[in-house]
Design a protein around this nucleic acid. Structure first.
Length: 697
RNA sequence: GCCGCUAUAGCUCAAUUGGCAGAGCACCUGAUUUGUAAUCUGGAGGUUACCGGUUCAAUUCCGGUUAGCGGCUCCA
């Protein structure tokens, strides 16, 4: 007797161990038909999975009870579709070896190795999709069969499948005592793949699919290993869901900061200047300086000192910090002095020798700074410090340069030159906790003001097996504890991730996703016991003895480039008033109202508001369209009627209607207040909300 | 750096098998004086990213360079 407890608490009894599918059938024919898989004791399995002992069971269908799309069903569909795609590709490209094909959050991929001379290109997608369509049409069952390890290995060896053999070996190492295959149809006759499953019952259950893109990958993620071709696709239960996905992808593309950056003239990257070097155009410059002013105010409040340091420093500085040898490959090459260069040329020094001699410290030069900390450290060290002076908090919008790999560069989120809203706090050990909290509070303030809610916090800890870290483990333990405690006090969920620490200390990172789902690190707070040692920093304690300070590195925005890039996507280019390059556009109905429009403009400008008048010889409808496309928060339409009453007709971005009239002064005051308070668009207190609620009343 | 794709007017995109490079928007003219998401007219705008090759002829085919896109790898 096997007792199966269902999700609603009811219990079903079976004489012999039933399959998950049989349980579904016992509940109802409709459910059995809709079933794609099952969760037995929380574990996702095939419908054909036999349940030998008392268990809880949940049938997985395309939709949950509440009508939402079930994540488990998508997992099953995509995993199964990966098999279908692999079968189609192996049919069309003989000799292709399969590697690994997992489902992901919004899609799936299959890594494969094409034989020499055989290449798949995007032009082949239609052929592949047609072949996949046939396989789905045939509605063949996914049939699992297991083989003992030895027999399975022998089979894979016979088939010459290098990658699958390796997958099997790892499965065995992980404790499997047998190997499983899935045949798409009948084992021995139809296409099959080594796979641990689970899958949907048959290919026909895949309602909609699409081959998305081609990419390359490395076997086991190791760049020294085999290069593989990765084919991405996606699958859904219905065509409607696929259409929805396609539509969402297109919408996301419109919010992409690279698209909006061009459209709204926020930044420009110029081939003649260099890859990954951002030029902030006037509009982007406004967004950036507003953000910098915002945080600048907070920094003064928290007792930071503003400092300024040059963009380069001697190699010796970075040898001392440890950056030069450690990150040599990802820095712009050093700058060598004229005399030194001439001397080396006379000696017939080769490039290789030069590189070695610079690393060894025999040749000096300068480097574009990859980090601001060494400069700030030298400021701290420039005068004797007493324990009473601490914490010393040095802040700078410091621009740094890193030689990122060419294939990794893109938009504003991954660049070669960027400005960190950097600060370094030199503190006593007993001050660490409070200061880290202070840093976190700035991040919280920024995210709160901008309405960024969708982020995660990562506490990066050292990987005990790695050699890349400097300093002793006792200090590491203390620093890690400080980070953990501070984040816990903050009251936000976080994850601890070993191996994610910087080489000099643990860190707290704030990570957000862009429109295409890629994660980016923004704000960061790092505790560092090591650089003070490397630079032999000290302060005089209350005991009149010399003590070592601890450093905290922090950058709440991270880099201005990346932050603004992410912010453009967050707001879809529709910045709140205080960040908008143009805050108000005055739209005279005709030339007859030009004078009144200019008067309004002057009043706005007198309050520091960024406004303009559209004097174009166009109808107001056209002016509205142009202003709407420029994503300007407010339009003030003025005609003879308004001039007579000293009023303005207000439109707010995103609202396709005239919000109503406001007096000239009330409008100017309202905009100024919304600006000053850095309100989010439509929030209580904004001109939009005031007019909106008035019109409702 | 690696794999695949892409590069045409300021922007978005066309251009049959290789045969005179085109549209919309933006820009400049002129008319219109307009009340809530595009009024009409005319004009200007190009070494088809760059370098080389094949050909009577190259935007189109081939090679290279540069840059962009999607991934991989990396990310102090």
């Amino acid at each position: 007797m096997v007792r199966i407890t269902l999700k609603d608490g009811t219990c079903k009894e079976f004489e012999a161990a039933p399959t998950a599918g049989e349980v579904a059938a016992s509940i109802g024919a409709g459910l059995a038909k809709a079933a794609l898989g099952a969760k037995v004791n929380g574990e996702l399995v095939d419908l054909a999975h036999r349940i030998p002992t008392d268990s809880t069971l949940e049938i997985v269908t395309a939709k949950n009870r509440d009508g939402t799309v079930s994540a488990e069903s998508l997992y099953l569909l995509r995993h199964s579709c990966a098999h279908v795609m692999a079968e189609a590709i192996t049919r069309l490209f003989p000799g292709v070896q399969l590697v690994y094909g997992p489902p992901l959050e919004t899609n799936f991929y299959y890594d494969m190795s094409f034989p020499p001379g055989s290449v798949m290109s995007t032009d082949d997608f239609a052929r592949v999709e047609a072949e996949m369509g046939k396989i789905i049409e045939e509605n063949r069952a996914f049939t699992r069969f297991n083989l003992p390890v030895e027999e399975g290995m022998e089979k894979l060896t016979r088939e010459g499948s290098k990658y699958k053999l390796d997958n099997a070996r790892r499965a065995v190492e992980a404790g499997s005592n047998e190997l499983s295959w899935y045949a798409t149809g009948t084992p021995g006759r139809d296409w099959e793949d080594l796979c641990r499953g689970p899958h949907v019952p048959s290919t026909g259950k895949i309602g909609a699919f699409k081959v998305l893109s081609l990419a390359s990958s490395y076997w086991k993620g190791d760049e020294k290993s085999d290069r593989l071709t990765r084919v991405y696709g996606t699958a859904f239960a219905t065509k409607e869901e696929l259409a929805q996905f396609t539509k969402q992808s297109e919408e996301a593309k419109k919010r992409d900061h690279r698209v909006l950056g061009k459209q709204l003239k926020l930044f420009h990257i110029d081939e003649m200047v260099g890859q990954g070097l951002v030029l902030w155009t006037p509009n982007g410059g406004i967004v950036r300086s507003e953000l910098q002013n915002f945080i600048g105010t907070e920094l003064r409040r928290q007792g930071y000192f503003q400092v300024f340091t040059p963009h380069i420093g001697k190699l010796e500085l970075y040898r001392t910090s440890g950056h030069f040898p450690y990150y040599r490959e990802s820095q712009y090459p050093p700058i060598i002095e004229h005399d030194a260069m001439a001397k080396l040329a006379d000696e017939g020094c080769t490039c290789g020798e030069l590189s070695n001699r610079m690393a060894a410290g025999e040749v000096d030069g300068y480097m574009l700074k990859p980090m601001n900390c060494p400069h700030h450290i030298r400021i701290f060290a420039s005068e004797p410090r007493s324990y009473r002076d601490l914490p010393v908090r040095l802040a700078e919008f410091g621009t740094v340069y890193r030689w990122e790999q060419s294939g990794e560069i893109g938009g504003m989120t991954r660049v070669r030159g960027f400005t960190q809203d950097d600060a370094h706090l030199f503190v006593r050990e007993d001050q660490i906790a409070e200061e880290v909290l202070g840093c976190l509070s700035i991040v919280k303030l920024i995210f709160g003001t901008l309405g960024i809610e969708d982020y995660r916090v990562r506490v990066g800890l050292r990987d005990p097996d790695s050699q890349k870290y400097v300093g002793d483990s006792e200090n590491w333990d203390k620093a890690e504890a400080a980070c953990r405690n501070a984040v816990a006090t903050l009251g936000v969920p976080f994850s601890e991730e070993p191996g994610e620490a910087a080489f000099y200390g643990p860190k707290i990172d704030f990570v957000v996703k862009d429109v295409i789902g890629r994660s980016w690190q923004l704000g960061t707070v790092q505790v560092d016991y090591n650089l003070p040692i490397r630079f032999d920093l000290s302060y005089v304690g209350a005991d009149n003895k010399s003590h070592r300070p601890v450093m905290i590195h922090r950058a709440p925005f991270g880099s201005m480039e990346r932050f603004v890039g992410v912010l453009i996507e967050h707001f879809a280019g529709a910045f709140p008033l205080w960040l908008s390059p143009e805050q108000v556009r005055v739209l005279p109905i005709s030339e007859k109202s030009a004078e009144y429009a200019n008067e309004l403009l002057a009043a706005l400008k007198a309050r520091g508001i960024r406004a303009s008048v559209d004097h174009a010889n166009d109808r107001v409808q056209a002016k509205i369209k142009v202003a709407a496309e420029a994503k300007i928060p407010y339009m003030a339409v003025v005609g003879p009627r308004d001039a007579e009453q000293r009023a303005v007709s207000v439109r707010a971005r995103g609202v396709e209607a005239n919000l109503g009239e406001m007096s000239f002064d009330a409008f100017v005051d309202g905009i100024a207040a919304e600006f000053e308070q850095r309100l989010l668009s439509g929030a209580p207190g904004t001109v939009q909300a005031t007019l909106g609620s008035a019109s409702k009343a």
